[in-house]
Amino acid sequence: MADVDNDGQGRGSLQWIVALVVVTGLSAGAGTLASFHMLATVDRLVDSRKEVVETPVISAFNPSDRLRKIAPVTTNLAAPPDSWIRMEASIVTDKLNDEESHALTAKVGEDIVAYLRTLTPNQIEGARGLQYLREDLNERAVTRSGGKVRELIIETLVVQ
């Protein structure tokens, strides 16, 4: 009887080992297939990004345009009398010589001061107020320069 029990345990152990080898093989195969699928997906993503990166970047400005810094402007607002505003801005211009650019930035700076003195803090409050201020100053700069200014860029704006 003892021989039969040993024989039964031997077959049971062998079956477990065979089952373990089969499950291990299936797992390895599934892992290999999953990795090939993942590599193919990554390759497709990389190829699609290469197409996006290879498109040239189109700028809104000409290569001959120059960025000119305007002297910081500090002035009081129209109302209330104790409110102040400080603004730093730059303008994008055509290629100008140094004399013309200094004169133009001074004119635009004076025009900014004159315009800011007519405002109240409520008029430039929030995103919409800032957008209106930017558009108004941009329009005034283009008009004042005779079209030599492409755009006015507000860098900093502090209202106190």
Rank of each mutant, 00 (worst) to 15 (best):
M1T: 08
V4Y: 06
D5R: 11
N6S: 09
N6Q: 08
G10V: 09
G12Y: 10
L14W: 07
L14V: 07
V18T: 11
A19F: 14
L20V: 10
L20G: 13
V22I: 14
L26M: 14
L26W: 09
S27N: 07
G29P: 12
G31D: 11
H37L: 15
V46T: 04
D47R: 01
T55K: 15
T55S: 13
L67I: 06
R68W: 09
R68D: 11
P72D: 11
V73S: 05
T74I: 12
L77G: 02
L77Q: 07
L77P: 01
A78G: 09
W84V: 09
I85K: 02
R86M: 07
E88A: 10
E88R: 11
A89Q: 01
S90G: 01
S90H: 00
I91P: 01
I91G: 03
V92C: 02
K95W: 07
K95H: 11
N97I: 02
N97M: 00
E100F: 01
S101F: 03
L104P: 00
K107T: 08
V108H: 04
G109W: 00
D111L: 14
V113T: 04
V113L: 00
Y115F: 08
T118S: 05
N122G: 15
N122Y: 12
N122W: 07
I124Y: 09
I124T: 14
E125Y: 13
E135V: 15
L137G: 04
S145M: 04
G146V: 11
K148W: 02
E151I: 07
E151A: 08
I154V: 15
V159D: 01
